Simulated scan of single mutants.
Amino acid sequence: MAKPERAIAWPDRLLFIGCGNMAGAMLARWLDCGLPPERVTVVRPSGKAVAEGVNVLTQLDGPVAEGTLVLLGFKPQQLGEIAQTLAPLLSGATLFSILAGVPVAQLRDAFPQSGTILRCMPNLPVRIGKGVSILHGDVDASAVQREQTEALCAPLGLVEWLDDEALFDAATAVAGCGPAFVYRFIDALAAAGRNLGLGDAASARMALVMVEGAAISAAASDIPPDAMADAVASKGGMTREGLDVLDRPDGLAFLIDQTLRAARDRGVALAALSRKAD
C-alpha cells in the first residue's frame, strides 16, 4: 500500500465514537500512514482492542478536551440514544460524521453544543488508500477546516467535496455502495465462466485479475471508459457481440441505474429512521 508523499498534519487528539468496519478501515489506513496511535481514543461498548497503542474505552468519563476531532462511527439508527449521553460531553468539539443518511442539520439538533460539523462518506478501499471520501461541511466550516479535513482524507484516496448536501445520498450510492456492486459483478463474471465450462478456481482468478487490470487501465487513461470499451470491440467480433447484450435497453445501464436509485432511496429512509429514534 502506497504511503502519502507529503507529511500529514495529524490531529492532536482523535476520538472515535464507535469503530466498525468503515471507521476501522479509516483508522487502520491512518495508522499505516503515520498517525501516532497515542493520539487516538476509541469508545466502543465491547472494549475490544483496536490496534497497538490505541486507547479503548467502554464509555466517556468526562468532557472531551478542546481541539479534539470526534469521528462519529456508530450505526445511524443509534444517533438518538447515543446523543443523549454524548452531546453534553462534546461542547465545542469538531464532529466528523460517517453516519449514512444523517444530514448536518440533524447532527446539529443532536449535538447542539458542538463546534463545526463535517460529513464524510468513505468506502472500504480507503483501507488501501484507493477509496473515495465524499465530504460536506457545515455552513460555519472555515477554509482552514476544509483544507485540514481534505488533508486528513487524502491518504484514503480520492476526496470529493459536495456543496449541495442534497446530493450526498446519490454520491454515496455511487462511491460508498459501489464496491459491493463491483464485487457482485466479479462474482457474476466468474459464475458465468463456470457455466461455460471453466473450473471454479480458474474462472474466479481470471475474473478478479481482469477487473483489477481493467480498472487500473481505465484510471491511467485519458480516454473515457465507454470509448475504451468500443476500442477493443471489433465489428463482428466476440467483444462486440457481448457488448450488444450489455447495451440492450434493459441491460447493464438500466440495471445499474435501478441499483443506484434503490441505494440512494435507502439513504433517505435511513435518515428518516434516525430521526424517529431521536
Rank of each mutant, 00 (worst) to 15 (best):
F185P: 10
T116R: 02
C120P: 00
G197N: 15
T94R: 08
A191V: 06
Q113S: 13
H136D: 12
F74G: 10
G73S: 04
R108P: 06
M121D: 02
A173Y: 06
F185W: 12
M121P: 06
F185Y: 14
Q106Y: 10
L71N: 01
L158D: 10
A151C: 04
F181V: 13
L89S: 04
S91I: 04
V144N: 11
T149C: 04
G199V: 13
A83P: 03
I216T: 14
L99C: 02
I186A: 07
D163S: 14
A170L: 11
G193E: 06
Q145H: 07
S217G: 03
I98A: 02
A171F: 09
F111I: 09
T94N: 11
F168G: 02
A215V: 15
A207E: 12
I186Q: 08
E165T: 04
P122G: 13
L86R: 09
V102P: 04
Q77R: 12
A110M: 02
V139Y: 10
L90C: 11
G213D: 11
Q78V: 10
G131Y: 00
V159W: 00
P122V: 13
D200Q: 15
K75I: 07
A141P: 02
A143D: 14
R127G: 00
M206Q: 09
A100P: 09
A170W: 09
L189S: 08
A180F: 15
L99V: 07
Q113P: 01
F168W: 04
L71F: 12
A100K: 06
G80P: 02
F168V: 00
F74T: 10
F74Q: 09
A110R: 02
G199E: 14
N123K: 09
A166I: 06
L118W: 07
T85F: 07
R119V: 00
V174T: 11
P76T: 15
Q78L: 13
P112C: 01
I186F: 05
R146A: 07
M206F: 15
I82V: 15
Q84W: 07
S203W: 05
V211M: 13
R108F: 12
F181W: 15
N195V: 14
A105V: 07
E81N: 14
T149G: 01
K75L: 14
P76I: 14
D200W: 03
L135W: 02
